[in-house]
Amino acid sequence: MQIHNLTEKNSILNTFISELRDVNVQKDRMRFRRNIERVGEVLGYELSKVLNYTPSDVKTPLGKSRVNLPQNDIVICSILRAGVPLHNGLLNYFDNSENAFISAYRHHKDNPEDFEIIVEYLACPNLDGKTLILADPMLATGQSLVSTYKALKPYGTPKEVHLVSVIGAKPGVDYVKKHFNENTHLWIATIDDELNDKGYIVPGLGDAGDLAFGNKLQH
């Protein structure tokens, strides 16, 4: 798997990440969602550099201009609910893409530290020969991305796969690397070193879904 960690080079992305992490800025849900969306736009721009391009002539009022345009048939698949702002950021740049949505959540069995990933809702177009962008803002243990990709198998075989995340943990990145082939690309804004005993990224930013949309009842 090819890993593109964007904070290895300084850019305006650092500002968005710092605000996402900041407990004071997090109180503004609209700004939190917008920062996730902006990170998605930056990641989408970087991802676009490895797509396939062909020359195309564009008619202007004064003549013709030749420009290279992307030719990939893209499907953006996001994991609900935290993935919605990230999905919107990607869709802002890949606006002709097809879209897929999947619900995947942690189901805790006997204690808070043990869980399995449950996939329930799934809406997806045919993936055969497409460029699949699988978006999940928090790459913690990596189990959600792996479970989601397995659930997409009946919908066809993508030509290529790109994983997009905002913040990851090194153990989760290592786990994903073992389960996706070497041609898969991971586009991620930043990677932290640790997971705590509940499988959350440290220092991370907390629960992205709750920060974006409000606290949920546990059942």
Rank of each mutant, 00 (worst) to 15 (best):
V23S: 15
K9Y: 04
S97R: 00
N181C: 04
I79T: 04
S78F: 05
L80S: 10
D110Q: 11
S48V: 05
A82R: 05
N196H: 06
P85V: 03
A100P: 07
L127I: 15
V42P: 00
S11F: 06
L122H: 04
F101Q: 12
K170V: 12
I191P: 11
I191H: 09
A151W: 04
F101P: 04
L90A: 00
R29G: 09
R106P: 03
R29E: 15
N52C: 09
N72K: 06
I79K: 02
D28A: 05
D210W: 11
V67M: 15
I102T: 07
L217F: 04
G142Q: 08
K153V: 09
I188A: 01
S48L: 12
G209I: 15
V166R: 01
K59M: 12
I133N: 03
I74Q: 02
D210C: 11
P125F: 05
A140F: 06
D22H: 13
T157P: 01
R31L: 11
P125N: 02
V161I: 14
N68S: 11
S144T: 15
P171Y: 11
D136Y: 01
D197P: 02
K9L: 02
D114R: 14
I17H: 01
G199A: 12
P112S: 09
D28L: 06
H4Y: 06
G156D: 02
I36M: 14
V176H: 11
V166T: 06
R38S: 01
I201N: 11
L20R: 01
V50I: 08
L86H: 00
G172F: 10
G214V: 07
H162N: 10
D57Q: 12
E46M: 09
N126H: 15
Y53L: 10
Q26F: 10
V164T: 02
Q2V: 15
F32H: 10
A208L: 15
G156W: 08
V173S: 06
L47P: 01
G83C: 13
D210F: 10
C77T: 08
I117K: 12
N96K: 08
P112Q: 05
G204A: 05
L86R: 00
K153S: 09
V67L: 09
H108F: 08
G142D: 06
A123N: 14
F16V: 00
K159Y: 03
V58F: 06
H107C: 10
T60R: 04
A140I: 08
